[in-house]
Nucleic acid binder design. Structure first.
Length: 920
RNA sequence: AGGACUAUAGCUCAGUUGGUUAGAGCGCAUCCUUGACAUGGAUGAGGUCCCCAGUUCGAAUCUGGGUAGUCCUACCA
C-alpha cells in the first residue's frame, strides 16, 4: 500500500469494474427501492448542486442495495428545449446562419448532432462522482418511448377537456420568440421611471392624468379607469377621453381594482399588454388592441409614425411627443419589478397569442390531497406549506412553446382553422372522417420541456405499456431535489402521475439546500464563482481555472474581475481531493438548512480523513497479514476489543438512524468521529501493547487481530455508501481476511445495529483509562514535558475499582501515557512534591523533581480550582433553591447532588495540593 | 403586502422529547519527525447561544414581540 491515499489511481478502475459487472442493475429481492434521477440537461454539465444531489441519491441507493432491497436508480437526461435550442442557434449564428436559413428539419438534425457530441459530458461526470446508476436503462426525454408517453398524455388530457387551446395573454419572450410559463419569468426590482401623462377629456374642458412605467403601451389603451368610490373622479365615469397620438377616444370606466392612493388614482388600461388590464378589459368588454409584433416592435395597429419601431425606441418617441404636446405632466423616479425571461434575460411582454393550456386547477385537487393525506411526505416537512400555497392558487399552465426542439404538439389544422388532436395525421383523418383532399398542417409548436419531465417517474419505466418494471419500481421510493423546482417539476409530476397512474410518483420528497460559494453567493457563470465538481476531484491549476471561468464572457470588464477574484481565492489553484472526499464533504453539509455554503477548507479535512482510513488499514494489514487472526485456536478478547466492538454497535445504530431521517450530516459525523477519535486514536493505540508484547498470550493477540480486522471490515461497509471507492479498494484485501467472500463490497450486507452489542462495562472501563491517560498528558502538555520522556507516577486515594482497573490496564497506561513506574502511595505517607490529576477520587501524582516548575503547576492548579469553584457555586445555587428540589424530577436532583459531591471532593483535593505546593 | 427560513467559537456548522461543564471540523497558540498516518500526534486558548419580555424549579431549546439577513409568493399602473 502507498503511504498516503492516492484516489486518482483507484477511482476510475473501480467504477469501470462495477459497471462492467452489472452491479448497478437491480439485483432482485422482495422489497423494491427506486429513485429517478432528476434528469439533467443533456447538453449541459454538472455543477456543484448536481454533485451534491447525486451524492445523496447514490448514498441512499447504495445503502438500500446493501440492505438487500431490489434497487433501481434510473438514469436519464432531459432535452431542455429552450436552453438547448439557444445553444445551437448561437453556434449557427457564429457561422452567420439562422435556424430559419436551415429550416426546421435540418435545424432539429443539428440539435441531435449537438446532443450526440456534448451528451457525454454529463454521463462522464456522473460516473466520476461514483453514481451507481443503472446505465442499461438510460433514458432521454426525446426517446421514442418517452415521446410516445408525451403524446398519449397530451391526447388523453385533451379528450378529457383538461388541455385546451385559447387566445390569452402570455409571457412573451421577444428574442426567443416564444411564450414561456409564469415560472420561467423572474421579476427583479429595477430602477425605472413613472411618467405622468395628461389625457384630455373629449370635449375640451380639462384632462385626467395617468401614470405609467411603460409609456409605449398607451398606443394600445382602450380605457382609463378610476375607483368607483373616488369622489375626485366620479363625475367623469362614463365620459370619453381623447387618447393623444392616436386620434382615438376611449371611455372612463370605474373598477374596484384601481388603487386610489397610487399615482393620481387614474389608470390607463391596455388590455392587450398587461395582465391586470386584460382582466379588467374582459370585465368591461373593452376592445383589445395589440400594438406589438413578435419582436415587440410596434405593428400596424399603431399610428404610422411608430410602426416598425422597437418597443424602447417607441417609448422614447412617445415621451418626446407627449412632452412637445405639453401633455407630459411629470416624471418620477420609480422602483418597479421588471419581468425578464430566465433564459434570455430580456424584458418579457404580456402578448396576446394562441396557446395550449393545461387546466391545472382541476388536476391540482388530488395532488393536494395526496400530500394532505401523507401519501407523499416532504422532508423537511415545512416544504409542504410551500407546495400547498402554490397548489391552492395554481394558474393554468401554458404548455406550448414556439420552438423547434421538443415534442411537437399532436394537433392538425385544416384551412379553415379547425384543429384535430390525434397521434398522427392519418389517425386524425380517419377519426374525423376528413376527405383525402383536405389540407392538414401540424401545429408548429412544441411542448414545454417540463411537460415531458412531469411524466418522468413512469415514462422511464415503459408507460403507456404496463411493464414489469412499472409494477416493481413505481411508485418510486423517494425524490431528491432542490426547492427551486418544487413548482416546476415536483408539483407537476404529482399531478400527472396521479391522473394517469392513480398512484403517487414517490412516497417521499427529500428537499435539499442549494449549494452556494463560500460567501453564500449563488454560483453562476456570470459571477464567475462556479466550481466544477470534477475540478475538486482531479484538481486544477490556477491558469486553467481562470481561463475556464472567463471563457466566453461577453463583457471584458467582468472577465477581468473574475480573473482577479479567482487568483486571490485560489492562489495555488485547486488540489486534487478525490471523489470520496468530495462526497463526504457534501454529506457533512447536508443539514436541514436552505443554503449550503461550500467552503473549500472542509474538503481538505475530509481528504485527510480518507488518508486516515487508508493508514488505519495499512496498520491493520501490517499487523495481520501472514498472521494468525483467530482462525486457529481460541481467541481472548480484552477490554479494548470489547469496548471498540461496543462503540461500533453504537455507531452503526447512529448511522442507520441518521440515514432513515435523511440526516447525512449526522451520519457522516458519527462515522468520522468513530473512525478517527475512537478506532484510530484509541483502539489502534491500545492494540499495540498487545501485539508488540512478547509476553502477551497468543490467544490475546489473535483476539486483537481479529477485532482489528472485524471492526475495520464492518466500518468499511458502514462507510461504503458515502465513500464508495476507498472502501472498495481496502475491502478487497481486508474483506477476505475478515472472512468475507464476494466480489465487491457494493453487494455485501449493510451492518445492522444489534442491542446486545453495547457493553457498558467496557465503555466505563475505557473511559476511566482515557481519563487517567488524558490527565497525565495534560500535565505533560501544559508543562512542556517532551512526549518521549518517561514519567514515574504515584497513585493515591483510589477505591477498589481503581485498583483493579489499574492492575488490568497498567501496560496500556505505561504505553499510551509513556509512564515508567506506577505505584500506590501507602496510606498516611506523605508523597513527593508532585503535579496532580484527578480521575474521580483517584489522585494521580507526577513528581515534579527536575521536571516541573512550581509556579507553573501552581498556575495550572489555580485555573482548575477556579473552574471547579464556579461550577460548584452554580450547582449549590440550584440545590439551594427549594422549588427546584421540590418540583424537579427526583433523578435530576439526585444527579445534581452527586455532581456537587464529586466537585467538592475534587476541589478539596486540589486545594490541599495547592497548599502543599505553596509551602515549599 | 403576505409567508417561509436563518441568527450558537475567528470561519463553516451540529445541538434529538426543556435539566450537557454548550460540541465538531477548519483556523489559532505551544510542544513533538516513537516503528499506520506531518494529509500526522499531544495540549491549550476561544462563546452575552441576535435583543427584549413571558411560561417554567430550570430556556440555546417552548411562547410573544423586536432587530438583521436570505428567499418565495402577490395585481400596485
Amino acid at each position: 500500500m502507498e503511504k498516503t491515499f492516492q484516489p486518482a489511481d483507484i477511482e476510475t478502475r473501480w467504477y469501470q469494474q462495477w459497471e462492467a459487472s452489472g452491479y448497478f442493475a437491480p439485483q432482485g429481492g422482495e422489497r423494491a427501492y427506486s429513485i429517478m434521477i432528476p434528469p439533467p440537461n443533456v447538453t449541459g454539465s454538472l455543477h456543484m448542486g448536481h454533485g451534491f444531489q447525486e451524492a445523496i441519491m447514490d448514498a441512499l441507493i447504495r445503502y438500500h442495495r446493501m440492505c438487500g432491497y431490489n434497487t433501481l436508480w434510473q438514469v436519464g437526461t432531459d432535452h431542455a428545449g429552450i436552453a438547448t435550442q439557444m445553444v445551437v442557434e448561437r453556434q449557427l449564428a457564429a457561422q452567420g446562419i439562422s435556424r430559419h436559413d436551415l429550416g426546421r428539419e435540418k435545424f432539429v438534425q443539428k440539435v441531435w448532432e449537438w446532443k450526440e457530441e456534448s451528451g457525454g459530458t454529463i454521463t462522464r461526470q456522473l460516473r466520476r462522482l461514483g453514481s451507481s446508476l443503472d446505465w442499461s436503462r438510460e433514458r432521454f426525454t426525446m426517446d421514442p418511448g418517452l415521446s410516445e408517453a408525451v403524446q398519449e398524455v397530451f391526447i388523453r388530457l385533451y379528450r378529457e377537456g383538461l388541455i385546451y387551446r385559447g387566445k390569452r395573454l402570455v409571457n412573451w419572450d421577444p428574442v426567443l420568440h416564444t411564450a414561456i410559463s409564469d415560472l420561467e419569468v423572474v421579476a427583479e426590482e429595477e430602477q425605472g421611471q413613472l411618467w405622468h401623462f395628461n389625457y384630455p377629456l373629449a370635449g375640451g374642458e380639462g384632462h385626467v392624468t395617468v401614470a405609467t412605467t411603460r409609456p409605449e403601451t398607451m398606443l394600445g389603451d382602450t380605457a382609463v379607469a378610476v375607483h368607483p368610490a373616488d369622489e375626485r373622479y366620479s363625475h367623469l365615469i362614463g365620459r370619453m377621453v381623447a387618447l393623444p397620438l392616436t386620434g382615438r377616444e376611449i371611455p372612463v370606466i370605474a373598477d374596484d381594482y384601481v388603487d386610489r392612493e397610487f399615482g393620481t388614482g387614474v389608470v390607463k388600461i391596455t388590455p392587450a399588454h398587461d395582465f391586470n388590464d386584460y382582466e379588467m378589459g374582459r370585465r368591461h368588454g373593452l376592445p383589445m388592441i395589440n400594438i406589438f409584433n413578435d419582436d415587440a416592435a410596434i405593428n400596424d395597429e399603431a399610428p404610422e409614425a411608430y410602426r416598425g419601431l422597437d418597443r424602447f425606441e417607441a417609448r422614447k418617441r412617445v415621451i418626446a411627443e407627449m412632452d412637445s404636446l405639453g401633455l407630459l405632466a411629470k416624471v418620477d423616479a420609480h422602483t418597479l419589478r421588471v419581468p425578464r425571461g430566465d433564459r434570455s434575460g430580456v424584458v418579457i411582454e404580456p402578448y396576446l397569442t394562441d396557446q395550449w393550456y393545461v387546466d391545472a386547477r382541476e388536476m391540482a385537487r388530488p395532488a393536494i390531497a395526496a400530500v394532505e393525506s401523507g401519501a407523499i411526505q416532504f422532508v423537511p416537512k415545512q416544504w409542504e406549506n410551500t407546495y400547498f400555497a402554490w397548489m391552492r392558487d395554481i394558474q393554468d399552465w401554458c404548455i406550448s412553446r414556439q420552438l423547434w426542439w421538443g415534442h411537437r404538439i399532436p394537433a392538425w389544422y385544416d384551412e379553415s382553422g379547425h384543429f384535430y388532436v390525434g397521434a398522427s395525421e392519418a389517425e386524425v383523418r380517419a377519426d374525423n372522417a376528413l376527405a383525402d383532399d383536405t389540407v392538414l398542417r401540424q401545429d408548429e409548436d412544441v411542448l414545454d420541456t417540463w411537460f415531458s419531465s412531469a411524466l418522468w417517474t413512469f415514462s422511464t419505466l415503459g408507460w403507456p405499456q404496463e411493464t414489469p418494471e412499472l409494477a416493481t419500481f413505481h411508485p418510486t421510493s423517494v425524490l431528491v431535489t432542490g426547492f427551486d423546482i418544487i413548482f416546476f417539476w415536483v408539483a407537476r409530476m404529482i399531478m400527472m402521475t396521479l391522473h394517469f397512474r392513480q398512484e403517487v410518483p414517490f412516497h417521499t420528497v427529500y428537499v435539499h439546500g442549494l449549494v452556494r460559494d463560500a460567501e453564500g453567493q449563488k454560483m453562476s457563470k456570470s459571477k464567475g464563482n462556479v466550481i466544477d465538481p470534477i475540478d475538486l476531484i482531479d484538481g486544477i491549476d490556477l491558469e486553467s481555472l481562470v481561463s475556464k471561468r472567463t471563457a466566453g464572457m461577453m463583457q471584458p470588464q467582468l472577465a477581468a474581475r473574475i480573473d482577479k477574484a479567482t487568483r486571490s481565492q485560489f492562489p495555488e489553484g485547486i488540489a486534487p481531493y478525490g471523489t470520496d472526499a468530495l462526497r463526504f464533504t457534501y454529506f457533512s453539509l447536508a443539514s436541514t438548512g436552505r443554503d449550503i455554503k461550500f467552503d473549500i477548507g472542509r474538503i481538505e479535512g475530509y481528504r485527510n480523513f480518507c488518508n486516515k482510513i487508508w493508514n488505519a488499514a495499512r496498520y491493520v494489514l501490517m499487523n495481520c497479514e501472514q498472521q494468525d487472526c483467530g482462525g486457529d485456536g481460541g481467541v481472548e478478547l480484552g477490554l479494548a476489543d470489547r469496548w471498540i466492538t461496543s462503540k461500533l454497535q453504537q455507531t452503526t445504530a447512529e448511522v442507520t438512524r441518521a440515514v432513515a431521517s435523511y440526516r447525512f450530516d449526522l451520519a457522516s459525523q458519527a462515522l468520522y468521529e468513530f473512525v478517527w477519535n475512537e478506532y484510530c486514536d484509541w483502539y489502534l493505540e491500545l492494540s499495540k501493547p498487545v501485539l508488540w508484547d512478547e509476553k502477551a498470550s497468543a490467544a490475546a493477540k489473535r483476539g486483537t487481530r481479529q477485532t482489528l480486522l472485524h471492526v475495520l471490515e464492518t466500518t468499511l461497509r458502514l462507510l461504503h455508501p458515502f465513500m464508495p471507492f476507498i472502501t472498495e479498494e481496502i475491502w478487497q484485501t481486508v474483506g477476505p481476511m475478515a472472512g468475507k467472500t464476494g466480489p465487491t463490497i457494493m453487494l455485501q450486507p449493510y451492518p445492522q445495529p444489534s442491542h446486545k452489542g453495547v457493553d457498558s462495562v467496557a465503555n466505563a472501563d475505557i473511559e476511566w483509562l482515557k481519563g487517567v491517560i488524558v490527565g497525565i498528558r495534560n500535565i505533560r502538555g501544559e508543562m512542556n514535558i517532551p512526549p518521549g520522556r518517561e514519567l514515574p507516577v504515584l497513585l493515591r486515594n483510589g477505591n477498589e475499582q481503581d485498583r483493579s482497573r489499574l492492575e488490568e490496564n497498567a501496560q496500556f497506561l505505561k504505553k499510551l501515557a509513556k509512564l515508567g513506574d506506577i505505584s500506590w502511595l501507602p496510606p498516611g505517607e506523605e508523597g513527593p512534591v508532585a503535579a496532580t490529576a484527578l480521575v474521580g477520587e483517584l489522585e494521580i501524582l507526577v513528581p515534579m523533581a527536575g521536571l516541573i516548575d512550581k509556579d507553573a503547576e501552581l498556575l495550572r492548579l489555580r485555573r482548575e480550582i477556579e473552574k471547579l469553584e464556579k461550577e460548584l457555586a452554580r450547582i449549590r445555587g440550584k440545590l439551594g433553591n427549594a422549588s427546584f428540589v421540590d418540583k424537579a424530577p427526583e433523578a435530576v436532583v439526585a444527579r445534581e447532588r452527586e455532581k456537587m459531591q464529586a466537585l467538592q471532593q475534587a476541589l478539596e483535593t486540589l486545594q490541599e495540593q495547592e497548599r502543599q505546593l505553596r509551602q515549599l
